[in-house]
Simulated scan of single mutants.
Amino acid sequence: MTNAPEANTDAAWPQPADVIAPGTILLAATPIGNVLDASARLVFALAQADIVAAEDTRRALNLAGRLGIRIAGKLVAYHEHNEAAQTPWLIEQAQAGQRILMISDAGMPCVSDPGYRLIEAAHQSGVPASIAPGPSAVLTALALSGMPTDRWIFEGFMPRKRGEQERFFSTLATQSATTIVFDSPRRLQATLSHMAEILPERQVAVCRELTKTYEDVWVGTPSQLAERAENARGEIVIVIRGAGEMMVDDDQAIVEVLALVDQGMKLKAAARHVAHQYGLRSRALYQGALDARQG
């Protein structure tokens, strides 16, 4: 039996003093579900920072407890309702040499969470800023969705009002990039049903409870997913396939349908396949291909 290689004793975790330099603001991503996703830098930063600015101080304390550490510095609230007042104070503290850590409830600060105003002010005032990257619901959902990742757009939370949603979905009709949005589980079924009226054949992925025990990803058309969404629970991220690869005219799409039929696929199945790929109506493609064959 071959012995396992010995561990490299020269390699070691960075000591806490290496994580945040005095007078620096550090953004740090926190787990979006599974606490094991916390980075070593986050753990050290929570223990080292002179000031921890947290979107929710109770959640910050809960996170520290789950990580088995104690927040030794001053814990202050930093959220959308007090950003204007807290930002100048945090900049002053950094200028005085304090080590500042900024965290949101879950995931990456600044992404639909507080933080960007603080970093904007840091750049303007010459305060050094850095980041401890880590979990992000947006990137996690994008990777799990199976949608194209070469071009994508994050639109924050789905509009709530029907008229605003209708305008949003209408813009997606020609949006070539993959689109990512957050939504409430209580509104999910209504959102998907409305999307089905405007983008009936568009491929959508609903990513639920990412990294948690009951993580689930549904992929299909909006109407297919709406049927599953009646009792949806947990955090929801919706990923919508873009129209970039779908920018084809009807004649080209019909040619592709007929080519699949020539390869042995049934006409209806071929029409559904091409419609799903390009975000078109399968019924119209079926009829167009049928007319072309009869013509």
Rank of each mutant, 00 (worst) to 15 (best):
Q124Y: 02
H79Q: 04
A85E: 15
P133H: 12
A77S: 15
L139Y: 08
Y78H: 04
G73M: 01
I131C: 15
Q93Y: 08
A72S: 03
S112G: 01
G107Y: 10
A53M: 08
Q48E: 15
D50P: 06
S104E: 14
V111M: 14
S125L: 07
T140F: 10
T57N: 03
V127N: 03
P135M: 11
L67A: 14
S130L: 06
G115W: 09
P133R: 07
C110H: 07
T140G: 13
A121E: 09
A121G: 00
S112V: 00
S104N: 12
I131K: 04
S136I: 11
A77Q: 06
A84S: 13
R99F: 09
R117S: 00
G97N: 11
V138D: 06
L142G: 08
A72L: 02
I69F: 05
R70P: 00
V138H: 03
R59F: 04
A132Q: 07
S112D: 00
A143C: 06
D50E: 08
E83M: 02
D105Y: 07
G68P: 12
A129L: 00
A85D: 10
N82I: 01
Y116T: 11
L61D: 10
D50I: 05
L63A: 13
P135K: 09
V52P: 08
A129R: 04
L67P: 11
V76H: 02
S136Q: 14
Y78K: 00
E80Q: 12
H123W: 05
A121D: 09
I119T: 11
C110S: 14
A94S: 06
P88C: 10
E80L: 06
A54W: 10
L75A: 00
K74W: 05
A137E: 11
E92R: 13
E55V: 06
W89D: 13
A137T: 10
W89Y: 12
G134D: 13
L61E: 13
